[in-house]
Design a protein around this nucleic acid. Structure first.
Lengths: 247, 247
DNA sequence: CGCAGCCTTGAGCTACCTCAACCCGGGTGG
DNA sequence: CCACCCGGGTTGAGGTAGCTCAAGGCTGCG
């Protein structure tokens, strides 16, 4: 535990929210300077999470939210029997831990898929601050609401799409988020295994693999292990928007 | 539009939150009297929604949340092509419209499955009030978080369960919520069609129907159209917790 | 070099879907 | 009051998308 604290300190040549290059994607979106400076004081700590380690686990006491600063996470829930389900992948600027508010305990695991760094946002202080700053309050509510809307989109995917449509939707969503962060729209490196993609999409890893191969044959993608190049974005988009003919 | 306003007025022999019999299930949970009285002033309006009518539609401007007072709703999202997905069923005490906060527009439809009445909660006033009353603020955050956790549970169901497990989980969830409202734990009337259940569970209506029949043959349920009697609750529970043997 | 983790591909199986016929109950109109 | 209709619901038969099981291939690391 002491080593943990030390690690936090070691990371703490801090970058303030107000000067963070993620401020347009993260909690501070749209905040003017007085609010922003208050937020700086709140988000004092960093935490480093090595690839494969958990940021929090289901059942852990909930105290803080986390904003991904660098790296990549997955969250997964599991049922009493061993079954588990990846519920999301989080990249820089995205928030982790919202599930914990409901119970004062986390209800899912957050696992780093590569060496990562997060900003620690003590929740009780966030509540306090958002009582004072209406923009912050509103922004926080928007982020929670956006998570709900995202989840509904995943339900639509899981409930009514076929394997190819699911994978196409997944890739388009990933590239869009990467693009918002200044990465290429057409070329990406997957941070997760086929099995993790499968879990997220409600498919078996073999099906994911076969579908990647199929997309490659059809000239939609180039796939080399985890290196993906999107050759025909419009083609993927068309798959998602109903394979039904474009009459 | 005028008729709408008149209807609202006609409903408005108001029951205050502080004396509402749903206060232990709804937004006021855990609030002490000063907060509660403030809430009363906020939730002034009622709205009646006839069976089959929509409370709001995807794309509508977002202004208010709604607490179900009586009746039963479904929410559904749809993709560009016609596909749509039921994302939830809401009963007395549950909140509708959280999806709208993210965009100032609703992103799903809310449809009454029986004649219903909702309390209208103007959102901007709720934000304002929750800046003043920390318990209310905290309670509101919990409700949003709970919705996220619920959605993750549905993802688990859609992503990794088989038809029987899905239906069993659905029935147990329904009865549990009904029980919390003082209804029988073992006997219920479904408010939705087989098709709506199927959409929620990612199954076709025929599969839902067959699974009901199967449960009946196996002595788990008695099914007479929409009248359901749960004969062997433990048996259903066991189905959900992994049909894998109880070694 | 050899091992371990991940990925790919094939062959056969099965849970669920599709299509189609029929039934039931409640509301309407003659 | 009965005939009819219509929106659910049930049941059957056959098809198929995705799963399971199994073998083998890459890649990076000790």
């Amino acid at each position: 535990m002491t080593t943990d604290t030390q690690r936090v300190k070691a990371d703490a040549f801090k970058v303030a929210c107000s000067s963070c290059n993620l401020r347009e994607l993260c909690l501070p979106v749209g905040l003017a300077s007085p609010d922003l400076e208050k937020l700086d004081s709140l988000v004092a700590n960093r935490r480093t999470v090595a690839r494969g380690d958990t940021l929090f686990r289901s059942g852990d006491e909930f105290q803080s939210l986390y904003a991904v600063r660098t790296g990549f996470f997955k969250t997964c829930v599991s049922s009493e029997d061993g079954r588990d389900q990846v519920t999301g992948f989080q990249m820089a600027g995205e928030l982790l831990g919202l599930d914990g508010i409901s119970n004062d305990r986390h209800s899912c695991d957050a696992v780093a898929l590569e060496d990562s760094q997060v900003c620690v946002i003590p929740y009780s202080q966030l509540e306090e601050l958002s009582r004072e700053f209406t923009d912050l309050q509103h922004q926080f509510h928007k982020i929670m609401s956006r998570e709900i809307v995202r989840d509904h989109g995943v339900m639509l995917l899981l409930g009514s799409m076929r394997a190819e449509e699911r994978l196409a939707a997944f890739l388009l969503n990933l590239t869009q988020r990467l693009q918002a962060r200044g990465f290429s729209a057409s070329s990406l490196i997957l941070r997760m295994t086929r099995e993790e993609i499968g879990s997220y999409l409600g498919l078996k890893l073999e099906t994911v693999s076969r579908t990647f191969s199929k997309f490659q044959e059809e000239g939609l993608l180039e796939v080399k292990q985890r290196q993906i190049r999107i050759v025909d974005q419009a083609g993927l988009q068309q798959l998602v928007n109903g394979a039904g003919g474009a009459c």
